[in-house]
Design a protein around this nucleic acid. Structure first.
Lengths: 112, 112
DNA sequence: CTCCATACGTCGCGTCGCTATATATAGCGA
DNA sequence: TCGCTATATATAGCGACGCGACGTATGGAG
């Protein structure tokens, strides 16, 4: 699936991927891919800058480490990050409900 | 609700608003506002350019008329438009399912 | 006569996801 | 030994597009 329509929803996804414990960037990318059965396979050029933004915003905190000769930047949620994630979930529910209503067709959700 | 996160979903909404019959731009804006209880109140700077794009793309066709001294551009769906609307609905279902899955929290939809 | 709703339009800004490209290591098969 | 792939990170520049701000014009209510 094309992920171009993510505008404004990406941050929440990344935060959600970090909810059950610290992960490094590549692992976040994989987590999203796996939990959605490969439907959400984000390019690295999307993931890394977004993580930088989140860290800059204080929603996650990162630290360098080296595992198996490869450098990793491991991120974990901050308190602000958890709050922001909760907000993102609320916002998504509202958004999805509004769009689904306006879009019509099959009511909500795809019960077919 | 803030409609900034519409990126890529707007076209489908406009097409859906034209599904049950021809409407002019302002009426499309009102239709979306009304069917969502005011949650989706798009600014004119969003609606009109988008309608122009859709007409340019051949998904809707417009014609001028004058009603009550005011000029109106009335649009209706083309065949391509109907196909595109169906596609937009499919795409939305896929997208919403993927995001909801990855975002986690309350599963899907807000049954609470 | 003023104000608001109706009705259309466009310019320019800002955001942000994506493509392309670069670097570096580990491991596997030829 | 020589690629090739997966792992792991990074950034520059592009392109798309929704939105704010503004401009024009009419009709009706107060």
């Amino acid at each position: 699936m094309r992920a171009e329509a993510l505008k404004g929803h990406l941050d929440g996804l990344l935060l959600a991927a970090l909810e059950d414990g610290p992960r490094h960037g590549y692992a976040v990318k994989e987590a999203l891919r796996d939990t959605t059965d490969g439907r959400l396979d984000l390019p690295t050029g999307t993931v890394y800058p977004a993580l930088h933004r989140l860290e800059q915003a204080g929603l996650i905190s990162g630290s360098w480490s080296v595992v198996g000769g490869r450098r990793r930047r491991t991120y974990e949620l901050t308190e602000d990050g958890r709050r922001s994630l909760a907000g993102a979930r609320d916002h998504w529910q509202e958004f999805a409900t509004a769009i689904s209503t306006a879009l019509g067709g099959t009511p909500w959700p795809a019960t077919s």
